[in-house]
Design a protein around this nucleic acid. Structure first.
Length: 954
RNA sequence: GGGUCAGUAGCUCAGUUGGUUAGAGCACCGUCUUGAUAAGGCGGGGGUCACAGGUUCGAUUCCUGUCUGACCCA
């Protein structure tokens, strides 16, 4: 271990090829290669099968197949890996099948960016861009035409996703994550696409799929719905108008305000979208706000108190007197006259009403706003949508039929003026949603959509919500608050809108009656037919399907093929069926789903709902959540703050084990902070563990298991070490089982430092170095060290996978550490008694060290071996100390120790006057007792030239 | 604005039904050792337990509010 000039008398100093520095960034790739070469994952599967181990299934939540992995991905995958490996070491069959989520808007969006010529997108995916250019050339398209045929878009999306998966996969493997990387699941695999369709079929069969409507962002130029990501907010000038709605029933107004009203009163709304007034079905007020009845030159007006003054100023009626006040609640269901149609609309109550701007009374058109839609559901308002796909009023709309909504604005304002109900008309510059492609203003518009119903009783009478609530109840959560979070989301959530009007998605393979909108009565059979085709040719099979292939001649004219695709959350939400149910090595339900806390709304919930709607329960038994990564100040990592740290940066400099150690050391239940200092501290911890292991390896390098001393024949101190180790291992094992890795890490660190470094190893150095190599005393210590090393390497393996692999090799063990199970530690018969006895001894030892330190500070001595100690102890302590016999001095690491019984503990430290043995460094009068070896003590002479000393205790 | 969670030494974390001077590892300082040496031992300094109220004989621990941050929603 050292190439310094050696003592002329030899001691047992051993070397180990295990280097002090890990040099991980450089060496880890080599370990990875050897795992791949030996087909480690396959071997592990075979071992688990051969031993018929019980299964533990962690189902991988599929990351979205887009962009390089970031720190959050690394946290997620490494936590999963730690769990899978620790379960395997605990004796389970724990297969890990990684997956990817492939469909959906973000990828389609990337392709569109390429089509639009976005330079950054082109830089990232030059090949796909080249294909687009070629396609246009081949088909004589304008190079600037960004409308590509859907089938071609899907083809490009598929290619793009596949390429992204390879990029991410390489990094996941580099993190040391062990799994079936050669056979991952991908939601765009044909079989998986088919099974997603089948999941939809089951949900329909169970009676949870319903048709409905919902307002969505709508681009009149695209003629289609837009997702939030396709919406850009830009400034736009809109008319901002105040419109008076006459209250129909004066008596009701009188009652609501508690004053006699004998003139017409008007509820005043403010809107920047006059074109939505034909769809007006109500006026919303906030139940808890105060509304005033004001006497103005324009008539009696109802306004919210907070905004009355500014509103009146707009109408040129500032200072008008307040006649009465009431709360919003009192106005509920007051009937109003629609400003230009022959119908009455109610005042309704809604929490979405604010006093930020306007009048505190909100024009409510369920067909044109999400909040309007939701409050409309509560009040069961008509949801008539007067606007068609082309952004024009439908033929059935009086006064405005055929106009575009933008043409409608001035017409409506004119009409309101004519009717005398327009109180103000201003221009407002505000942020307004625009189409990402056309840069034109978009509208909000109710469209036909498909839903998984929460409150509709399914075929067996349960509502999905009640099933979901029961499923949450039956799930175990880590940490426990996950339950409350999921529960509240399930309790509140509206029906799940699963339809999308997109290209890159799994199609909803239904035929719909052209008149009634009903699904074909034989939908399940037709769906399975479609699924079979998708299984062999992918989703394209549906898009290019000729309905005549499946529909009978008489059905054909009456049914249309649905073009909608599924919400991408439905894809990943179906993987429990498409993956867990399908792969032989997996099982349903999973034991564990593990994802970031955002997935309570995402995958945890989508999986729960599809699980409940198909099988009546959650597809998991346990849910584990981890927090997000933040910087040292608890702020989220972002490009603009410049506080981000990339996983690639860490594994390319410090090594993946450092990343793994940080993740294992952090309490993942909250935010996980990372900074350069934290990485530095992580490296410190790593070095401590590594050096401890290095010492262990070096000192058992001349030891073979056959030379082990029988447990009960081992020295007291070594039996204690075994007992302490066993307790430590079972503690850490229990922490792994509870997924409390950071506490386990603290225990491991503490064990290396306190138990080994400053106690056991420090004491046994004397025996290891100075006793005869094959002596009982030395082999006894090595027996303990061997077990500790064998145990420790396994405990480290789930976390420091690369380092543990290296230790395993240095130990000369067969196979691979990941094929093994927790080490079986021999139990000394007197373990409990030993621990108790040594607790007292260690108490005294601490006092002795303090006393020695006092003298050292005085400059009286340096090494503790320069000290001679006289201990006086009360009976209990005395007995414990006396049990060590003459070996007490070794435990105290002093040259001499005497013991007398007394009333209380007293410690006297003297500087040794005897000479120092040049070999064992003890100060003893026996130095020079042998004429041939004047520098040696009697013990060393005996160890070198005689039978060797005998030790019983330490 | 709402729901959930977090805030204990420079850093990472403990802190068990509220109870004597709040612990550990690392870092820092001092020191020893030079047979774990780009290591190891010993000793030490360092915390108004985010803040403000309240309950209690007594609160880091219970309650309320505030601040800061995270996730999800609006």
């Amino acid at each position: 271990m050292s190439d310094k000039p050696s003592n002329k008398y030899p001691v047992n100093l051993l070397d180990t090829p295990f280097p002090m520095r890990g040099d991980l960034a450089k060496r880890e790739p080599g370990f990875l290669k050897s795992w791949q070469d030996e087909q480690l994952y396959k071997k592990l599967r075979a071992r688990a099968n051969a031993e018929n181990r019980p299964k533990f299934i962690l189902h991988d939540g599929p990351p979205y197949a887009n962009a390089q992995i970031h720190l959050g991905h690394a946290v997620n995958k490494i936590l999963k890996d730690i769990i899978v490996k620790s379960k395997s070491l605990a004796g389970f069959d724990a297969p890990y099948v990684p997956g990817w989520d492939c469909h959906g808007l973000p990828i389609e969006h990337q392709i569109e960016k390429l089509a639009k010529g976005d330079s950054k997108a082109i830089k990232n995916s030059p090949q796909i861009h080249a294909r687009i250019v070629q396609y246009r050339k081949d088909n004589g398209l304008d190079p600037k035409d960004f409308n590509l045929p859907p089938a071609f878009i899907r083809e490009l999306c598929r290619e793009y996703a596949a390429a992204q998966i390879e990029i991410q996969k390489a990094d996941f493997i580099r993190l040391g994550v062990l799994g079936d990387w050669d056979h991952p699941y991908r939601t765009m695999d044909f079989k998986t696409e088919a099974d997603i369709v089948r999941t939809l079929g089951k949900i329909h069969a169970n009676g949870y799929l319903v048709a409905g409507q919902k307002p969505v962002h709508w681009c009149v130029d695209c003629g289609s719905a837009l997702a939030e990501a396709e919406v850009e907010y830009e400034d736009k000038t809109s008319p901002a108008i105040d419109v008076a709605f006459r209250a129909v029933d004066r008596a009701a107004v009188s009652k609501a305000f508690g004053v006699e009203v004998n003139r017409d009163a008007f509820a005043v709304i403010w809107t920047t979208t006059p074109w939505t007034l034909p769809a007006n079905q109500a006026v919303s007020v906030h139940p808890d706000l105060t509304y005033q009845l004001l006497d103005t030159p324009k008539g009696l007006l109802i306004l919210v108190r907070e905004l009355a003054e500014t509103a009146l100023a707009r109408y040129g009626a500032a200072g008008s007197p307040v006649i009465a006040e009431t709360t919003g609640k009192a106005l509920d269901l007051l009937q109003l006259q629609h400003p230009f149609y022959d119908r009455q609309v109610p005042i309704i109550l809604g929490d979405h009403v604010t006093t930020d701007a306007g009048t505190g009374l909100v024009h409510t058109a369920p067909a044109h706003g999400l909040e309007d839609w939701q409050v409309g559901l509560v009040y069961n308002l008509p949801k008539d949508n007067p606007v068609g796909d082309d952004g024009r009023y439908k033929q059935s709309v009086p006064l405005f039929a055929g106009l575009t909504v933008w043409q409608g604005n001035p017409e409506i304002i004119n009409l309101l003026t004519e009717r005398g109900v327009l109180l103000a008309n201003e221009k407002l510059l505000h942020s307004y949603p625009h189409c990402w492609r056309h840069k034109t203003p978009i509208i909000f518009r109710a469209t036909a959509q498909w839903f998984i119903a929460m409150e509709k009783a399914g075929v067996d009478g349960d509502t999905l919500r009640s099933r979901a609530n029961a499923a949450v109840e039956a799930t175990e959560f880590f940490p426990a608050w996950g339950r409350a979070r999921l529960e509240s989301m399930i309790g509140n959530r509206p029906d799940w809108c699963v339809s999308r009007q997109r290209n890159w998605g799994v199609p909803m393979t239904f035929f719909v009656h052209k008149e009634t909108g009903e699904l074909h009565p034989d939908s399940l059979r037709l769906l399975e037919e479609a699924a079979k085709r998708i299984e062999t040719r992918g989703i394209e099979a549906w898009f290019e399907l000729d309905p005549a292939e499946l529909l009978s001649a008489e059905d054909l004219p009456h049914y249309r093929k649905l073009k909608d695709t599924l919400d991408v959350w439905f894809d990943s939400g179906s993987t429990h069926y498409a993956v867990l149910r399908q792969r032989e090595e997996l099982a349903w339900p999973a034991d564990l789903y593990l994802e970031g806390s955002d997935q309570h709304r995402g995958w945890f919930q989508s999986s729960l709902l599809t699980g409940c709607a198909t099988e009546g329960r959650a597809p998991y038994k346990q849910l584990l959540t981890h927090g997000f990564t933040v910087d040292e100040n608890g702020r989220k990592m972002s490009k603009s703050l410049g506080n981000g740290i990339e996983p690639q940066e860490i594994f390319n400099t410090l090594g993946a084990d450092m990343l793994r150690l940080w993740i294992a050391s952090a309490d993942y239940s909250g935010e996980m902070s990372l900074s350069q200092e934290i990485l530095k501290r992580t490296s410190d911890a790593y070095r401590r563990i590594r050096n401890t292991v290095r010492f262990l390896l070096a000192n058992i390098s001349d030891f073979k298991p056959e030379q082990a001393v029988a447990t009960d024949a081992m020295l007291d101190l070594d039996r204690l070490a075994l007992a302490e180790y066993a307790a430590f291992q079972s503690k850490v094992g229990a922490l792994f089982e509870r997924y409390e890795f950071h506490t386990a890490m603290q225990e491991i660190l503490k064990y290396c430092s306190e138990e080994l470094g400053s106690f056991y190893l420090d004491i046994i150095k004397d025996r290891l170095y100075t006793m005869q190599a094959d002596s009982h005393g030395r082999r006894s210590a090595q027996t303990a060290l061997w077990h500790i090393t064998q145990g420790l390497v396994r405990l480290l393996a789930p976390i420091l996978s690369f380092t543990a692999h290296e230790v395993w090799q240095a130990l000369g063990n067969e196979d691979n550490v990941f094929l093994s199970t927790w080490h079986q530690v021999p139990a000394p018969a007197d373990a409990a008694a030993l621990i108790e006895r040594f607790a007292q001894i260690r108490e005294v030892r601490a006092q002795v060290q303090k006393e020695i330190e006092v003298q050292r500070a005085d400059g009286k001595l340096g090494s503790s071996l320069q000290a001679e100690v006289a201990v006086t102890a009360e009976p209990a302590t005395f007995a414990a100390l006396q049990s060590l016999g003459d070996d007490l001095k070794f435990v105290l690491i002093v040259s001499a120790a005497t013991l007398v019984a007394g009333d209380a503990l007293a410690i006297e430290v003297k500087v040794a006057e005897a000479a120092k043995c040049e070999r064992c460094w003890h100060y003893t009068p026996t130095v020079g007792s042998h004429a041939d070896h004047p520098g040696l003590c009697a013990r060393c002479v005996d160890n070198l030239f005689g039978k060797g000393e005998a030790r019983q205790h330490a």
